[in-house]
Design a binder for these strands. Structure first.
Lengths: 330, 330
DNA sequence: ATCCCGGCCGTGAACGTTAACGTGATGGTT
DNA sequence: AACCATCACGTTAACGTTCACGGCCGGGAT
């Protein structure tokens, strides 16, 4: 009794088989409107039997929703993001959502284009690591679609956010360095865009210490380290925006004949999976990245639900714990 | 002259503004059917002016296509995949396609579910790193949707494939080890599924050498290495399925007090971005992962085009060059 | 007995696009 | 001069679902 795969089973086929109308089948699936438990069960059974799958297009035509979730990030090649993405995928699957991913390279134009694309495709919501777009543009996105911003303070109280506790993480890193006797610190900042929590926290804990900014990549970290050490040879400890920049710094240090951590200590941020296997093993700030991904989806689900029910409850602004993992690099 | 964003601009609005019919607007966009260059330009101009965006749902309703591409992979947390994904994203964007990603953990059920999901959502095609599904199931997918398989031999001559040249890469690795004087090799295989190119190539170059299989992860590599060295203490060189397993092997070696490469050499596969920064720097087989991603999309585009035009040209089975990068671990 | 109300379900319409077909004008062929 | 392609465009219908509305039926209040 295998159905012919070339012709689509429609809601009308189900209705006919179950002896009800289209609308009742729709009600049975979506749980909207009044329907008796008995007919609901019967309809669901025939749906199962006929292996009926509602057309996302026809459904989207009415509802403007596609059962999809947009994930915007700056650089999937940075191992931090895949770790988060894994959490996003798993949680999204649990909610019956597919994930469409956009890579932006922290470019404002591409961040905007990604958001527009996601909007047009009728996603249920957006999770975004925005690094270039201004707050107003994020608010504008949120006006059209539920939005959760990641690793950035909320652009408005109404939009949800989930972040690593950068302030604490940075403070822990700096205090660790200071406790080890370092008096001249430096920071390799990678935030090319708008959010400078790490930078501000660093400046707060190490007043007057030099900060050099560069792209949050290995080469960016290398260049930033080279510049900083050139201008401030007295520096004996580097705090990097992320682990990738820390790796670049270590490379640059080596090239200049300086040993890590003996001549110069290095602390990263993210605790990538391979951080412990680097040479030297990287001291870094840890945040549960899988949990971050999961939490982002939960927050988005809340935002979606809130919008549907028009209850404008507090969207929530979560800070995930940051802990210092001391290895050999500092 | 800003349009009200709350009401959608439809094809009829454009038609009215341009003084033509819906169908002509459609023709102007899609390049199908006869239309004079002049009206085409005029219609395109008014589309621009009104900022008209065709509804993906209405379009999909007719065409069953969503302008989307499905990417199925086993473990986004393995840095190999993000590197490929980057190439996929960039190439897909160039073709005007969005990418929906599914993580399967090499689980057959989830591979099938991902494919089904992608099918239902009307993707233009699928790019898949399938590690568990049987060839027949892949052929069945291909019957419904253009498919390109990655890092696996084509399940049928009609389906396109793009792979690293595993046979050559593996041979280079083994020969390097042998040239360094190693007489007792071992392999840490990570292919839990169907494709065993690396394993066979290894067996061909190092006949009789022991092979232990485990999950293609750090812990998997650690466990496999522990087992292999327990059973074959004479082994002085390990070839791992990928860099992650190599890292696991190095960890296991260290725990047992064996130095790398002095007591036991290790060669990986993939040349992850951080491979050079590991301790010791990892000798590994390199394939251009970004290029792999790009090539996959090009192959898929070819398959899509071929299916549309019903020309069943040769789908192409590409092998990307594999080179050995010698560092310190072997 | 009539009215009304709420629970349950059906009917028509609408969402916005493209495929299939139809039509009028133009230009070339017999 | 009649005919016939061909071109350029218009008209109708259909894709499959949900929304808005309406109808029926049974039971309690009037």
């Amino acid at each position: 009794m295998e159905a012919d795969h070339s012709v689509r089973v429609t809601i009308d086929d189900v209705a006919r088989a179950a002896g009800v109308s289209r609308q009742t089948v729709s009600r049975a699936m979506n749980g909207k409107g009044e329907i008796s438990a008995a007919t609901r069960r019967r309809v669901l059974a025939t749906i199962e039997e006929l292996d009926y799958r509602p057309s996302v297009f026809a459904r989207g035509m009415r509802t403007q929703r596609a059962g999809t979730l947009g994930l915007i990030l700056s650089d999937i090649a940075n191992p931090f993001f895949p770790a988060v993405a894994r959490g996003v995928f798993d949680a999204a699957a649990a909610h019956g959502l597919s994930v469409v991913v956009h890579n932006t390279d922290a470019h404002a134009g591409r961040e905007a284009a990604a958001a527009r694309e996601i909007l047009e495709r009728g996603a249920e919501g957006v999770i975004g690591f925005f690094e270039a777009l201004a707050d107003e543009e994020l608010v504008e996105i949120h006006r059209r679609l539920p939005l959760v911003v990641a690793d950035r303070r909320a652009p408005a109280p109404t939009v949800a956010s989930v972040s690593s506790d950068f302030a604490t993480g940075t403070r822990l890193a700096v205090e660790h360095l200071q406790a080890r006797g370092h008096r001249y610190l430096g920071m390799l900042d990678g935030a090319v865009g708008v959010d400078h929590v790490r930078r501000h926290a660093f400046a707060g804990s190490a007043p007057g210490a030099p900060i050099v900014t560069g792209p949050p990549t290995i080469t960016g970290g290398g260049a930033a380290a080279a510049q900083l050490l050139g201008e401030h040879p007295e520096v004996t400890a580097l705090f990097a925006f992320n682990d990738l920049m820390a790796v670049g710094a270590i490379r640059a240090l080596r090239e200049r004949g300086r040993r890590v951590p003996d001549d110069c200590a290095v602390v990263g941020y993210d605790d990538l999976t391979l951080a412990a296997d680097l040479d030297p093993p990287l001291t870094t700030v840890h945040t549960d990245k899988y949990e971050l991904g999961r939490t982002l989806v939960e927050a988005l689900d809340g935002a979606i639900r809130a919008r549907r029910e028009e209850t404008s409850a507090d969207p929530g602004h979560r800070l995930l714990p940051a802990t210092l993992v001391v290895r050999r690099s500092a």
